[in-house]
Simulated assay, not measured.
Amino acid sequence: MTYRVAIAGCGGISDRHLAALKQWEQSGGRACAVAVADTNPSRAQAAAERYGGRLSVYADYKKMIREAAPDVVIVALPHFLHLEAACFAAEAGCHLLLEKPMALTRFNIPRTSIWTSWPTSCILRRGTFPATSKRKRARTSAII
Score class of each variant (00 low, 15 high):
F107G: 03
S27A: 13
V34M: 07
I74T: 11
R54C: 14
A48H: 05
A69I: 02
G9P: 12
A69K: 15
E99F: 14
S141L: 08
A37R: 09
C87Y: 05
L97M: 08
D60K: 10
G52S: 13
V34P: 03
I109G: 00
P110I: 05
A48S: 15
F80A: 05
R139Q: 10
T112K: 03
Q26F: 00
D38I: 12
T140S: 06
L83F: 02
R66M: 03
G127E: 15
G11C: 06
R66F: 00
G12N: 15
L81R: 13
D60R: 09
I143D: 07
A86R: 12
G29Q: 03
P70G: 12
N108A: 11
L97K: 01
A33G: 07
D60H: 08
F129E: 05
R50N: 11
T132F: 13
L81V: 00
S113W: 13
E25C: 00
A20I: 01
F129D: 06
A35M: 04
G11V: 09
A138G: 05
A37M: 03
I13F: 14
I65G: 04
F107H: 14
P119C: 04
A86E: 05
A35G: 05
K100Y: 01
P78E: 07
M64R: 11
G29W: 06
F80W: 08
V34G: 11
T112W: 02
G29P: 10
V5A: 08
T120Y: 11
P101M: 03
D38E: 09
A59R: 13
A33S: 11
H17A: 08
R43N: 07
T128K: 05
C10T: 12
V36L: 06
L96Q: 09
G11M: 09
F129V: 03
I65Y: 07
R66E: 15
V72F: 01
T112M: 15
A37Q: 07
Q23K: 12
A76C: 14
F88S: 06
A6L: 14
Q45L: 15
A92D: 01
G28L: 02
I109F: 09
V75S: 11
P41W: 06
L18P: 02
A68F: 09
W115E: 04
A19P: 01
I65L: 09
S133E: 13
Q45N: 13
I74N: 04
T39Q: 14
G127N: 10
Q23F: 02
P101N: 12
E84L: 06
S27F: 02
S133P: 05
R4M: 10
A131D: 06
P110G: 09
A90Q: 09
P78Q: 13
I74K: 07
K62I: 00
A48K: 04
A76P: 03
G127Q: 06
S117R: 15
S133W: 01
A20W: 11
A138C: 04
R126D: 06
A131S: 13
D38M: 13
I123Q: 06
E84A: 11
R16L: 12
L18C: 01
V57E: 15
S27W: 00
I13W: 12
I65H: 02
A85Y: 03
P41D: 08
S113C: 08
P130Y: 05
I65M: 09
V36Y: 05
M64N: 12
T116H: 05
G12F: 11
R135G: 09
R43P: 00
T112R: 02
I74H: 05
F88K: 04
S42F: 08
W115F: 15
I143H: 07
A86K: 03
M102H: 02
